[in-house]
């Protein structure tokens, strides 16, 4: 292996750290300056026949995929081996489970994406950032599904847990294994890069709605009473430009 170039450093070290920073700072900014825009921007009022299938399939598929990533990328191979799970069993489990999730996600996002582009009512309420997020999600899903089904379920298999995963975990311990990532197949490289860009886009898109899952609805009282209190009006001129602090005196 002949060393690591500057471009490799950019893609596999600089970009991830920049994305993480933008992700964190972006969320703080969005929460403090644009809580009004923190929303899932539902389009169900305008179109519900396709959404009925697309949205649940995509979301449940995405949750399964996220769970799969936690198991496959965050948990090191030594851990499952220490538990006594043979590599073969693990690979089949992840290939079958991953393929199932992949099918659900692909069908879901295909419905959502075509709806967004083809149904004129939905298109009319779509912002540029929605297209950016959607295209990134499409790239991530497609490049995630190809190896899951092609390589791991039907093909010879590729053990990303020896290359991609250590590199990813290394990012958080400050010693990313760039060489391992450079040697990974291109699908994985594209998948990882698009994912980092998505993290950077996340705080500025509707994806922030994912953090607002209202679990406390399960135990809060049904009827909420609130005192009139003092509500500071928003600063003038915040419409359109969104970089003034919301909600009261600074």
């Amino acid at each position: 292996m002949n060393g690591v170039g500057a471009t490799d450093i950019f893609w596999w070290v600089v970009l991830p750290y920049v994305a993480m920073t933008v992700f964190v700072v972006g969320h703080v900014w969005r929460w403090r300056y644009d809580r009004f825009g923190w929303d899932c921007y539902s389009t169900e009022l305008l179109e519900h026949r396709l959404l009925k299938w697309g949205a649940p399939l995509f979301h449940y598929g995405a949750f399964a995929a996220i769970l799969g990533h936690v198991m496959g990328v965050l948990v090191p191979i030594s851990f499952t081996q220490a538990l006594g799970i043979p590599e073969e069993v693990y690979r089949w489990f992840s290939a079958v489970g991953g393929a199932l999730a992949a099918v659900v996600v692909v069908v879901g996002i295909a419905i959502l994406a075509s709806r967004r582009m083809l149904v004129s009512r939905v298109r009319a309420t779509t912002a540029k950032i929605d297209y950016v997020a959607l295209v990134l999600l499409l790239i991530i899903v497609i490049t995630g599904v190809i190896p899951t089904i092609w390589l791991n379920l039907l093909g010879p298999g590729y053990n990303y847990r020896l290359t991609v995963a250590p590199w990813f975990r290394g990012l958080f311990t400050g010693s990313p294994d760039v060489e391992a990532m450079v040697s990974a197949p291109a699908v994985y490289q594209i998948h990882a890069t698009a994912a980092w860009v998505l993290w950077a886009v996340w705080p500025f898109s509707r994806l922030v709605h994912a953090w607002s899952f209202p679990l406390w609805y399960l135990w809060r009282p049904f009827v909420v009473y609130r005192s009139r209190g003092i509500i500071m009006p928003p600063e003038p001129g915040t419409a359109g430009r969104r970089w003034r602090k919301i909600g009261g005196p600074a």
């Binding site: 929303d39 709605h209 607002s212 209202p214 809060r220 909420v224 009473y225 005192s227 009139r228 909600g247």
Partner: peptide, 26 residues
């Protein structure tokens, strides 16, 4: 409302939506 963005005012019973808390769950 799952977000708890809607409320009944204690003083006069008017029912309102807190626009900064609504997440559009509809």
């Amino acid at each position: 409302c799952p977000s708890g963005a809607m409320y009944k005012r204690e003083e006069d019973g008017i029912v309102l939506v807190d626009q900064n808390r609504c997440r559009g769950w509809r």
